[in-house]
Write a protein that binds this DNA or RNA. Structure first.
Lengths: 207, 207
DNA sequence: CGAGAATATGAAGAGGATACTCACATTCAT
DNA sequence: ATGAATGTGAGTATCCTCTTCATATTCTCG
């Protein structure tokens, strides 16, 4: 923990001071995540978010200077969540299969509320201005957690970074796909995903 | 009427009869794929496509009755391509690693021109009424090819369908992710993807 | 050649969203 | 009670969008 960046609290026009406004801001972010997940970036409009939050459009602009600041807040919250999940799964040393199980369980949990939010945030929603740095930082820390896990079960020092990339995107691909088909809860799918991770990390001797 | 449309190659307002118009239609579809891949569904407008194709907007509507018919044509062409790649890789019986290598090579080839087209087509672009059936048919045949490959290298009959789903979405996830970062050509990534497939299909003996 | 069919053009219409503001109302803390 | 914090939503201005149509160009074929 070298660079301790205290929460810049996201670009806000005004800081909510009372409990009422804190709840409002929270409702807006939550509704924003929902709209983004369900309608995608193309259907993400400030008016729609305000309506979904049960709040007037004016209230939204009371705290978020513009649309992008809102996306930024949503992104931050979601990424923090995902990061904590991975961080926990790869925390202590533990048997490979246990790591895989915890990772899968956590990732599924992180995606089951807003199933496609993650992909929309990564693929569709534009990131610009000051968010580029934060975004890169998230990606780096995200991969780093995977890398430490990979390093733990794999000897070769060489391809660890590439393996982390491959593993993380494979896991995301499976979860994203399952989310689209409402199959996130299917236990046999979860089991097979665990198998995939374990098989890859333990290596194969196949012909 | 006896206007029997043998194979509605796509819902077209007019059939191109001369070489010139065939080239125009081709240019429109190609430009459409490009725009869709680069700007996503949100940035996919008929005017933009026409401009990218070096053709007037009028020409576009000469052959495609509306926007959706154009997406449909793009989708059809791309899916046909992908299907042929997988079909070829899983055709004859061959050693596991060879299958994996051919699959990876083919999938990367199919994505290297319009890197994110596949995902946009699956996730963002809406499917109109008539395309639902075609879309489902594609998904079924797509999975079936994976399933035959899985069945070939795996004994257990039980989870084959689930395994096919997991494998296909994992491969897509890795490729999609690599495409976003312009890393589709990185040989170590290709190699690791092959490893992932081989490891999963040959099973693990991990603790 | 020349007539009619095929193909190409792009300005313009009609419409719908959209992000965002502002003048004012309500509720809070002290 | 009084000012600060919070909430409202009709309205504005702008930007695009899809699609048409009357016209111009190019081709085919007898």
């Amino acid at each position: 923990m070298s660079t301790r960046i205290a929460k810049p609290a996201a670009r806000m026009r005004k800081q909510p001071r009372q409990a009422r406004s804190i709840a409002t801001v929270e409702a807006i972010i939550e509704a924003g995540a929902q709209v983004l997940s369900e309608l995608g970036w193309a259907g993400f409009s400030t008016n729609k978010v305000a309506e979904a939050a049960g709040v007037s459009i004016g209230s939204l602009y009371q705290y978020f200077p513009d649309k992008l600041a809102l996306v930024e807040a949503i992104r931050r919250r979601h990424f923090d969540h995902v990061l904590s999940v991975i961080s926990q799964a790869s925390a202590e040393e533990k048997p490979l299969r246990q790591f895989a199980r915890e990772l899968v369980r956590g990732m599924i949990g992180a995606h089951s509320i807003h199933p496609t939010l993650h992909q929309v945030l990564l693929d569709e929603a534009p990131g610009d201005r000051g968010s580029r740095a934060a975004h890169a930082s998230f990606q780096a820390r995200y991969l780093e957690h995977y890398a430490t896990a990979v390093a733990q079960y794999r000897r070769r020092r060489k391809d660890i970074e590439t393996m982390a990339r491959v593993l993380s995107s494979a896991v995301e691909g499976v979860i994203h796909n399952a989310a689209r088909r409402n199959m996130l809860d299917a236990p046999e799918l979860q089991k097979q995903l665990v198998e995939l991770i374990a098989a890859y990390l333990s290596g194969s001797r196949a012909t």
